[in-house]
């Protein structure tokens, strides 16, 4: 095998860009996170990382033990994953199953997917129309059924702000799992479903033992993409709460932005970024494995 000149022409522009603006920066961030913040190049080892865990805006142990908000960005990201993943996937699966059975209302698919199409900063504005006391429909719904503790502006209370953001991102992301599951469900041969029905399977058994096993790969893909999104959420937080009130709804992405681009603590910023990348390593690993298997 011989390297052709045309091959070099084809791959060089893309690979040079990827090298200088993706691969090299990842390495540089890793290195930077091991040096001191003042830019004097003092090697501090893992001190930036251990410092993160004593920074209450990242990890507020005292409040966690007392069960009081704010808990810190890393806990908020974990809460985000734990709540968002099952809710958005469940919602997406429910929509996909309904739309497969009732093809007449496929326009609902477009409506649900719009959340994935509009910018995150806009979602951060739209969310006021769900969780604001005067103009939010969710808040007013709770007022209507008499639960006055939730008939409030969710974003101005530390114990509801993060939840409001998470529910908003469920609304935003359900469309993604919906279209992926929809595409996967349409590939299930009708004979499988018919055979199960003849064997006396009810709706739940059909879902649990026939449909879900057959779309396992798609479920894995959605989990991977969702976890990455949940770890890196930034836009909607920035444009709705900016991490507030009192840091109750802050996330790692926002803390990294603040440390690096507001306070010029570059090493702290890269340490947070590295932490995010390490947490994303598990879904990235599965993503790569699936992709390699695919090709």
């Amino acid at each position: 095998m011989r390297l052709k000149s045309s091959t070099l022409v084809f791959v060089t522009p893309a690979l040079v860009l990827v090298f200088f603006f993706l691969l090299l920066p990842v390495g540089q961030s890793l290195v930077m996170s091991l040096f001191s913040n003042d830019g004097k190049g003092v090697f501090v080892g893992l001190k930036n990382f251990t410092n993160l865990f004593s920074d209450p805006s990242i990890f507020n142990l005292k409040n966690i033990l007392r069960g009081h908000w704010p808990f810190g960005a890393i806990v908020n990201n974990l809460i985000w994953i734990v709540l968002h993943l099952p809710l958005s996937m469940g919602m997406g699966l429910a929509c996909a199953l309904i739309l497969i059975d009732v093809p007449k209302i496929t326009f609902v698919r477009s409506l649900v997917f719009i959340g994935m199409v509009v910018p995150g900063v806009i979602i951060g504005v739209v969310t006021q129309f769900m969780f604001d006391k005067s103009s939010g429909m969710v808040s007013n719904f709770f007022g209507l059924i008499g639960i006055n503790s939730l008939y409030v502006s969710w974003f101005s209370h530390s114990n509801t702000a993060l939840l409001a953001l998470i529910f908003t991102s469920v609304w935003m992301w359900a469309g993604y799992s919906m279209i992926v599951f929809f595409a996967a469900l349409t590939t299930i041969p009708p004979s499988y479903v018919e055979a199960a029905i003849i064997d006396g399977a009810n709706g739940f058994q059909l879902l649990r033992y026939v449909k879900i096993p057959l779309i396992r790969r798609s479920i894995q893909t959605v989990v991977v993409m969702s976890v990455i999104m949940e770890l890196t959420s930034f836009d909607i937080v920035y444009s709705s709460t900016y991490g507030g009130p009192g840091g109750a709804s802050t996330v790692l992405g926002l803390q990294m932005y603040l440390e690096a681009f507001k306070y010029s603590h570059f090493s702290t910023g890269t340490a947070i970024a590295t932490l995010m990348a390490l947490m994303a390593a598990v879904p990235i690993y599965f993503n790569v494995r699936n992709a390699v298997r695919q090709s």
Binding site: L15, V18, F21, L22, L23, L24, P25, V26, Q28, S29, M32, M225, I228, L231, T232, F234, L252, G253, M256, Y257, A260, F261, F266, G269, T270, I272, A273, T274, M276, A277, A280, P283, I284, N287, V288, A291, V292, S295
Partner: peptide
């Protein structure tokens, strides 16, 4: 090369922000 590119596919933007 392909595996490296795949790893970079989902890298958080924050991880490249400061050096970039």
């Amino acid at each position: 090369v392909i595996v490296i590119i795949l790893c970079l596919m989902a890298i958080p933007a924050q991880m490249i922000a400061i050096p970039a």
